[in-house]
Computed example of a mutant assay.
Amino acid sequence: MQETSLYMPVKRFLESLEFTVKGEVGGCDVVGLRDGEPPVVVICELKLQFNLELVLQGVDRAASCDEVWLAARMSARGKGREHDRRFRALCRRLGFGLLGVGSAGNVELLLSPAALPPRRDPRRRSRLVDEHQRRRGDPVVGGGSRTPIMTAYRQDALACAAAMVDGPKRPRDLKTISPRAANILLHNVYGWFARAERGVYALTDVGRAALQRWPQPAP
């Protein structure tokens, strides 16, 4: 059993609270945004068991969001940390919400997050919101860490690559696909592009292989 198995139940629960939820955003297992100005930001970290490491992850995330939730599997015998009053008291003092995920995928609200004094890091919060809003759809299941994360930047680079399958392009040709196309081609983070001539870029074999791994809709 993997932490990714918790993602969809938790996603559905947060969506029922009117959050738009995406996985693996800015190093966080689950990030939800709810409309507002500024938007309400919630982070949920996933573990197979409630433990200290999960709490420490929540402490690290707290400066980036408005609410922190911790989610883990409910213990089969009812003797897990979720039933430990000391564990709940610690999370209550930290202002964290607790979610228990049952074997059938049901989610039990164990503890609601408390409204604590502001403790935000505006720069971290801003980066998180920007990545969440730029990302197309929800391409990554939260809780996984062994595969490349489909970031908004990678999505834009793939869109540019797909548009170059039929031949080399100039950055301005791709501007409608991604506003940062010029930056993507210039810095060539993934090695997908090569300069064919001054101001013109072509797709490399590595780029074509990336499109086979992550097929894109026709531009």
Rank of each mutant, 00 (worst) to 15 (best):
E3L: 06
T4R: 13
S5P: 11
L6E: 00
Y7L: 07
M8C: 08
M8R: 14
P9F: 10
K11E: 02
K11Y: 06
L14I: 06
L14P: 02
S16C: 12
L17Y: 01
F19M: 08
T20H: 11
V21F: 10
G23K: 07
V25P: 00
G27K: 02
V31H: 05
V31I: 14
V31Q: 03
G32F: 00
E37K: 13
E37Y: 09
P38Q: 06
E45N: 07
E45C: 13
L46H: 01
K47A: 10
L52E: 12
D60F: 08
R61C: 12
A63R: 15
S64W: 07
D66P: 00
E67V: 14
V68L: 07
K79F: 11
G80A: 13
R81F: 10
D84G: 01
F87A: 07
A89F: 13
L90W: 03
C91T: 05
R93Q: 12
L94Q: 05
G95S: 05
F96M: 02
L99F: 13
G100E: 00
V101K: 00
G102W: 03
S103C: 11
S103Q: 15
S103K: 15
N106T: 14
L111W: 11
S112P: 10
P113Y: 04
P117M: 01
R119L: 10
R119A: 04
R123C: 15
R125A: 09
S126T: 05
R127W: 14
R127V: 12
E131C: 07
H132G: 00
D138H: 13
V141S: 15
G143E: 09
G143T: 04
G144E: 10
R146P: 04
I149V: 15
M150H: 08
T151E: 01
Y153K: 10
D156Q: 10
A159Y: 03
A159V: 09
A161T: 03
A162I: 04
V165N: 14
V165Y: 12
P168L: 06
R170D: 08
R172V: 14
R172G: 12
D173T: 01
D173N: 03
L174K: 01
T176R: 15
I177D: 01
I177G: 00
R180L: 08
A182H: 06
N188F: 06
W192E: 02
R195L: 06
A196H: 05
A196F: 07
R198P: 08
R198I: 11
G199I: 03
V200Y: 02
Y201S: 08
T204A: 03
T204Y: 00
T204V: 02
T204I: 03
D205H: 09
R208S: 14
A209G: 07
A210C: 08
R213A: 09
P215A: 05
P217Q: 01
P217R: 08
